[in-house]
Design a binder for these strands. Structure first.
Length: 668
DNA sequence: AGGTGAGCATTTTTT
DNA sequence: ATGCTCACCT
């Protein structure tokens, strides 16, 4: 029945997959078959007679969860596979909270605030709280509030400090609106399990076998959540991670969680996976030489049986313009010479802003590319609008959603009325919806506004009743509302071109179609659709399907691999970033560099510019200190000028010629 | 109510 | 250089 075989794994992987008797820490270096080990362990547990329903595997991204689900499905009985819980931290928390958030004073239909909702609310509060002479950067406030939540600091009871006042109001506001931000999902799930023994007992009984992926990226709350769920003595907790790939410290990830694993889960079995199945040994040894300069680490030495291969090339180029030209030229030449696909190349950089010159050159050479990162489908105005309509239907007290659609499209409830309602809602400690629909308010505002509000609230209420009726077709109801209020007409009117209008309307239709699809599969369809929308935004599909050379930041490249990697902008000040030098987090930058190097399977080319345009003006750049650290066997440093002046060999010449003819021929 | 221009900052972004 | 926000204007 079980379609996996333990002996397909190497000895360390086997030991990790089949360990019993307490906590297990798997230190899985880049490309050492980490996912394989987790999925094998799951299959092994099932084969040993563990109840599949008692297995919980937690990942950070939905993508990882989906991939793992797929692989597990190929290894165990399909009935068993369905029972296994494989989810992200945040989805797990939502699941826990939807069941019992009432204990914490939330209604179980609470809304989830995304980054946009969160910033919006914080900005509003700052405007309220601060007077003309003081000011506060919303970004800073957000970071501080997040930090506070991650450290379990409750909001203060007074307005002693500005940030305290903002945090206090923010917390009050969210509660009043029956909403949680991403941090709250963790905070509240932890509180629920921590403060309510019967809830804790229920989940502990449910999950006996815990697996956590990317453990180096967990923050304090996530560790706490795992600890609260871990039952048994000793608990069956298996965490997998790589301290050398911890690159999200700035987002609250605690490397200490993995470095001091023993403190949280005593006497663990520790297994190191060091055999790499991805890269040539030359690349791995170069990576090893760099990362060993970090002090706080478990210590690992990756090796590969793949001998030989090309040396790592480090190229000094005069400017960022030359860099882009060189790299794209190399890609074109390499592809032709080795008849490779464009997909086998990736350009890795520290900042999104660096992608521009590469894009321009790729376009010029007619090379297809996919740019990872950038604005998401779900951040489009029209998608957010319609999502807000959905959110309002389920939770009218979601002020952020209501604010967004209250006068979109214009329905006679103007800014003056809304501002007034908002002010009064704060004083009356009501939600915006409650305030606006109170007879007090309706009597106070001009008749026209009052009528408009009544009409809108009637529409919403009627729709809400229909939507919450079991078996209703939410997508259909939404379409009716949008048509009734002429949303699409308004949307098109606001677009400069018909094309843009088509595209935006298409986006909304797409959203409604996927809601309709979703509802066929899930009970409580609208609610879970919105949850997925808030928590699972990475299934763009658009970028994934695109073909071509990959342009991606070092952060986003973690977990990926490419046959041919170009790591660009390896300059002091960029990598390590100037800011990280000031903040004394160069170790994390070194890990970032290490992550970049270990993405490469066959060839790695690193470039650095002597001059780069920074903020519009050319600046002198030193090569990254990591390049000096990397120096050794198999690393060749060269100058752009020497390569350019080098005579072409015949094959190169032919290729160049063929390529030029292709371009001149005007291939569409 | 939407458009325009000055002013400003400018790393990374799994959820 | 460039993109974004906010304030002020049409």
């Amino acid at each position: 029945m079980s379609k996996f075989r333990l002996f397909d794994l190497n000895p360390e992987q086997q030991a990790a997959a089949s360990h019993t008797g307490g906590p297990l820490l798997i230190l899985a270096g880049a490309g050492t078959g980490k996912t394989r080990v987790i999925t094998s362990r799951i299959a092994w547990l099932v084969a040993q007679g563990a109840s599949p329903g008692a297995i919980l595997a937690v990942t950070f991204t939905n993508k990882a969860a989906r991939e793992m689900k797929e692989r597990v499905a190929g290894m165990v009985d399909s009935a068993d596979a369905k029972e296994i819980t494989l989810s992200t931290f945040h989805s797990l928390c939502v699941r826990i909270l939807r069941a019992d958030a009432t204990h914490l004073g939330y209604k179980s239909n609470f809304s989830i605030f995304d980054d946009g909702d969160q910033s919006g609310l914080i900005k509003k509060i700052i405007n309220r709280v601060t007077s003309a002479d003081e000011s506060m950067d919303p970004g800073v406030a957000r970071a501080l509030i997040s930090k506070a939540k991650n450290n379990a600091w409750r909001p203060p009871d007074d307005d002693e400090t500005v940030i305290g006042a903002v945090y206090r109001r923010y917390d009050q506001e969210l509660r009043a609106q029956n909403a949680m931000d991403f941090d709250d999902l963790l905070v509240n799930a932890v509180r629920l399990l921590g403060e309510f023994p019967e809830v804790r007992a229920r989940w502990r009984t449910r999950f006996r076998h815990l697996l956590v992926d990317e453990f180096q990226d967990t923050n304090r709350l996530q560790l706490e959540l795992v600890s609260l769920l871990a039952a048994g003595d000793p608990p069956d907790v298996c965490v997998v991670g790589d301290d050398d790939q911890s690159i999200y410290g700035w987002r609250g990830a605690e490397v200490a969680n993995i470095l001091e694993f023993e403190r949280h889960f005593p006497n663990p079995r520790v297994v190191k996976l060091e055999q790499n199945y991805r890269s040539t040994d030359i690349i791995l040894q170069s990576a090893n030489r760099v990362i060993r300069n970090n002090t706080a680490r478990r210590g690992k030495n990756l090796w590969s049986p793949k001998d030989g291969g090309e040396p790592v090339h480090v190229i000094a180029v005069p400017t960022d313009v030359d860099e882009a030209e060189f790299v794209t030229g190399e890609i074109a030449a390499k592809r032709d010479l080795g008849s490779l696909t464009w997909e086998s190349f990736a350009i890795l950089y520290r900042m999104n802003a660096q992608s521009r010159p590469f894009e321009e050159n790729l376009r010029r050479l007619r090379i297809p590319y996919r740019l990872i990162g950038g604005k998401s489908f779900y951040d489009r105005r029209e998608v957010k609008d319609v999502t807000a309509y959905m959110a309002c239907l389920l939770n009218p007290n979601d002020d952020a959603a209501l604010l967004r659609i209250i006068n979109t499209p214009p329905r006679g409830i103007g800014a003056t009325t809304v501002d007034l309602a908002f002010e009064r809602s704060i004083k009356s400690e009501k939600t915006l919806f409650e305030e606006m629909t109170s007879s007090d308010f309706l009597d106070y505002v001009p008749t026209r506004a009052a009528n408009a509000i009544r009409a809108f609230s009637d529409t919403l209420s009627a729709a809400r009743i229909r939507v919450t009726t079991p078996g209703s077709d939410a997508a259909h109801i939404l379409t009716e509302i949008l048509t009734e209020c002429a949303y699409f007409d308004d949307l098109r009117r606001s677009c400069k071109t018909t094309q843009e209008g088509d595209s935006r309307e298409g986006n909304v239709r797409e959203l409604l179609t996927s809601l309709s699809e979703h509802q066929k599969k899930h009970r409580d369809g609208l609610r879970s659709f919105l949850d997925d929308l808030a928590l699972d935004r990475d299934r763009e599909g658009k970028d994934e399907n695109a073909k071509g050379v990959t342009l991606i930041t070092l952060h986003a490249a973690k977990g990926l691999e490419f046959p041919h990697v170009f790591l660009v902008g390896a300059e002091d000040g960029l990598l390590p970033h100037e800011r990280s030098k000031a903040e004394d987090t160069v170790d994390e930058e070194r890990r970032l560099f290490y992550v970049g190097v270990t993405r490469a399977m066959e060839t790695l080319t690193i470039t650095h510019c002597r001059h780069r345009k920074r903020f519009g003006t050319p600046t002198y750049c030193e090569p990254s200190p990591f390049l000096t650290e990397m120096e050794g066997t198999g690393v060749e440093r060269r100058n752009f000028e020497d390569i350019v002046n080098e005579p072409m060999d015949d094959a190169q010449f032919d290729n160049q010629f063929a390529r030029m003819r292709e371009l001149l021929g005007g291939t569409d």
